[in-house]
Each structure stands twice: as C-alpha cells, then as structure tokens.
Design a protein around this nucleic acid. Structure first.
Length: 429
RNA sequence: GGAGACGUGGCCGAGAGGCUGAAGGCGCUCCCCUGCUAAGGGAGUAUAGGGUUUGUAGCUCUAUCGAGGGUUCGAAUCCCUCCGUCUCCGCCA
C-alpha cells in the first residue's frame, strides 16, 4: 500500500512511477473521494466532540443533583446526525481503501521502464551451459526412464499438476532442502523458522496477495455446521506470507535489526490463469517445495540487503554447479508489491533456456505499511520497516536443474560435491 | 469434544456506567542531591488518524482497555458474536 500522504502531496511522482509500470490510475476519482473524506471526517469528528462535551456536562449536572431533562433534549438529534455522518464517512473511506489497495508499488529509480519480460535487463551470468557429447534429455524423460516420476499416480490420487516423486529423486529433493536451509542458517546468518502452512486473511492482506489475487489461492472450505468462527484459512502460496507476517503489528527495537529468517514450506498455487503454460513436467505445479529468505531491515539498508539476499540465493546455484543468469526486472514485469526485483534464472538443457528459479525483491514499506510492521530507534516515533524476500531456492525447480545439468550418457545423475554428504555420500544416482 | 476462569499501557496491576487515555507499582528517559556504588528527591514516559501548517515542530480534535456489533445523552465497565490464554476432564501424533 502506498502512503496516502505521498499520494496527496506528490501526485506527479506517484503518477510517473505508476506510468512506468504501465498502470493507469484514476487520479481524479481519488481526488474527489479524498475531498469527500476530508469534509465528512471533519464533520464527524466535530459532532463527536460535541457529543463528548454534552455527555460530560450531563454527567456533571447529574452529580450536582440538577435536572438533566433540558440537557438531554438539547442533544436529542445529535446521535442520529452523527450516525448518518459516520455511515457516509465509512462508505467513502472504504472506497478510498479499495482504490488504494488496487495500486501497485512504485518502482525504484534503478528499475528500467518496460511493459513485459522483453524489457528486463540481464545483469550477469555465472557458469557456462554444458556441451553434451550426447543429446541431453529433459527432466521428464530422465525421471520417467528411471521410474522416479509418476504423473498418472499423482493425477489419480489428486489432480493434474501434482507430482509423485519416488526413490532417489524424492531423496534428492529432501537433500536439496536440507542443504539450502543449512547454508542460509549457518553461513548467511538467517534464523531458521518453522511456520504454519494455513494462514488467515489478515496475513495474506499484509503481504499483498489479498484482496487482489484471491483467485491464485487455495481457500479451505470450512464446515459451517461445526466451525462457527468467522475466520477463513488459506494454503500459503509461499513462505513469504507466514514469515513476513511474524512482524505484523510489532514494533522492533532498531538494535535488533536486521531480522533475517529462512524457512522451508510447501507452496500451493491454484494458478487459475496459467493454463497452457508449462503443462508438461514439473516446472509449474499446484504444490511445490521452496526455501524462502525474508529480511526486515532499516529503510537505509534495504537496497544493500537486496543485493546481499540475491547473492545468498545465487550461492546455492553456484554450490550446485548450475549455470544461471541474474536479471533485473523492468517495471512492467515486477510483482504487485515489489519496488525492485532480481530474478535468478537457471539453465535448463532440456529446454535450452534459462528459467526462473528465484525471485528476490525489495518491497520497501509497501508490505510493512499494510501490516504496521515498525521499528523504533532510541526514543523516536516508530517508523515502518522495509521488507524483502527471495527464494533460496525453489526446491522443485532446483531438482529439475540438477537432473538436467548433471545427467550422464549412461542415464545416471552426478551429485554435486556440495550435496554428497546430504545424499549419504553418494556421488551418483 | 466437555466444564470453568480470564484478556486493561513496555511489564505487573486497580477500575464494576459519567470527574478514567486510564490509579498504584516496576521499568525507561532527563534533571537535582550524594567521594564512587547503593539509596533519595523532582519531571517526563502509548499508538494511529484528522484539522491547522512549507513541515514527520507546535496547537487542537477524534479513535483505541483482545476483535467486531449492540444498549445508552454517555461504555474499559452492561448485552451479543467471534478470537485468544489458562486450569481440569476426554481424545490424539
């Protein structure tokens, strides 16, 4: 959520930022609503002040034993008037809030303009795609050939776009997860956290998935007969949601910053709009494993933190000897809440292409304003934190990348040295 | 799943329709006093939003006692719903 003050005072800057994202914003509507809000709020608060004042004098008169009937008569219609004003104000404020919640974050100055992925800028490359002396298979062919992947079974027990992995491939996924968690917690200084996989609406609202992107989420249908609570739960689309929301409503002592968390969770995405993309194989699934990095930092440090966090994610690819490139997303290709995003794209020989395996973003105060996550420096007033996150990495896609990049002519997969201790010392599977 | 108790500021804890944004204590900040330390004295110490304003200064108004709704001229206080915590029983990994 953008700062309403900024929206009121720096119209030009806001409009320029949104235009860079190709987001058209009805500023006239905002101004109309804002003018209405101002008038109604002033009126309402004046009425409230009047009510408080007369309630007080009624109390005092009563204490002195005086007749309060005339006083009561004088405030006769105040209540009704106040009620009308309040309702009008609520309505305008709701409209304003809806408008505000529909506005994406402003891109950082260093973010290039552009409408879609063609406007992204490759920042760097690491490693060289391997020259094969045989024709490399894609991960589906490799896994099916070895009996490690059973798509029919997944469809039978669940639905399309779910996976059943077996044997060494299932173990490899677990090994990758452990390796990532250990690296980030032991070497990069993140605190490992275990978090719920079902979250409430407030949490999804805080990180920006709601209200705009409800169709991408799996909602738990509650049993109305037995569950009388007024709370709906959703499967998390990423660990970003529960982890970032750890600081929702909190005021952190500045001395404790930065907060750095790493967590592993499954992620659930209904991807309602994505049919037709990556339908085959394990690239795009409704359920996948991910190790997530989250940082909450002082606003002055967030762009340094973004570089560091991206390197932390990249170091996993390097340790696994997987060629990748780092891409700076253009304004039009960024996610709704991001101010700046780097994607890491791993080389997939089966596709002869670089494919996204990590997305690292600085959200500045866009998320923390929604969730009122703040820090306090000395005796100063609380200020909004900056939040960042990045995949470190998407485990499912890392698994594919290992299979495709480290396949051998004999059909076996070479285990990267860094991972061997996590595979019980195996050098190949 | 059953029974009961309870949710008040950074923390503990009063308050049971009006004089309570909230006593008292602890903690914290500043000042005074005191060879040092300890003790003592004084002042201050929530958050958000609005108006005014060049201003995140000052002044002022509003809201907030788990959350939401209701009763009332007036609610921390009474009523309803929900959430959460604790204790006991049951069940369970």
């Amino acid at each position: 959520m953008l700062d309403t003050k900024q929206l009121r005072n720096d119209m030009d800057e806001v409009l320029a930022g949104l235009a860079k994202r190709n987001f058209s914003f009805d500023y006239a509507q905002f101004q109309t609503l804002e003018a209405q809000r101002k008038q109604l709020q002033t009126q309402t608060e004046t009425l409230q002040a009047q009510r408080n004042q007369s309630a007080k004098s009624i109390g005092q008169a009563k204490a002195r034993g005086e007749d309060i009937a005339p006083l009561l008569a004088s405030v006769d219609d105040l209540g009704a008037q106040l009620e009308r004003n309040k309702q009008a104000l609520d309505s305008v404020q709701q409209q304003l809030e809806q408008l505000l919640l529909s506005i994406p974050n402003l891109p950082h100055d260093s973010v290039p303009a552009g409408l879609d992925e063609s406007g992204n800028i490759e920042v760097s490359r690491w490693g060289t795609p391997r020259e094969f002396d045989f024709s490399p298979l894609d991960h589906v062919a490799i896994a099916e050939q070895r009996g490690w992947y059973d798509n029919d079974a997944a469809t039978k027990i669940s639905a399309g776009r779910f996976a059943v992995l077996k044997g060494p491939m299932a173990r490899l996924q677990r090994a990758l997860t452990q390796f990532m968690l250990d690296t980030h917690s032991h070497i990069h200084g993140y605190e490992e956290v275990y978090v719920p996989y079902l979250v409430n609406q407030d949490s999804l609202f805080g990180t920006g998935q709601l209200p705009k992107f409800a169709k991408d989420l799996y909602k738990i249908e509650k049993d109305a007969e037995h569950d009388t609570s007024d709370r709906d739960l959703y499967l998390i689309p990423t660990a970003e949601v529960p982890i970032t929301n750890l600081v929702r409503g909190e005021i952190v002592d500045a001395a404790n910053l930065p907060l750095k968390f790493v967590g592993h969770t499954p992620c659930f995405r209904s991807e309602a709009g994505s049919y037709g993309r990556d339908v085959k194989g394990l690239i795009r699934q409704h359920q996948f494993e991910k190790v997530e990095l989250v940082q909450l930092v002082h606003p002055n440090d967030s762009y340094m933190a973004l570089e560091a966090l991206t390197e932390h994610a990249a170091s996993i690819l390097e340790a696994l000897e997987l060629p990748y490139r780092k891409v700076l997303l253009c304004a039009g290709d960024m996610g709704f809440s991001a101010a700046k995003t780097y994607d890491l794209e791993v080389w997939l020989p089966g596709q002869q292409a670089y494919r996204e395996i990590s997305s690292c973003s600085n959200f500045e105060d866009f998320q923390t304003r929604r969730m009122m996550a703040r820090y306090r420096e000395d005796q100063d007033k609380p200020q909004l934190l900056h939040s960042l996150n990045g995949s470190g990495l998407a485990v499912g896609r890392t698994l594919l990348a290992v299979l495709e990049n480290h396949q051998q002519a004999d059909g076996r997969i070479a285990i990267p040295a860094a991972l061997q201790s996590y595979m019980g010392g195996l050098t190949h599977i």
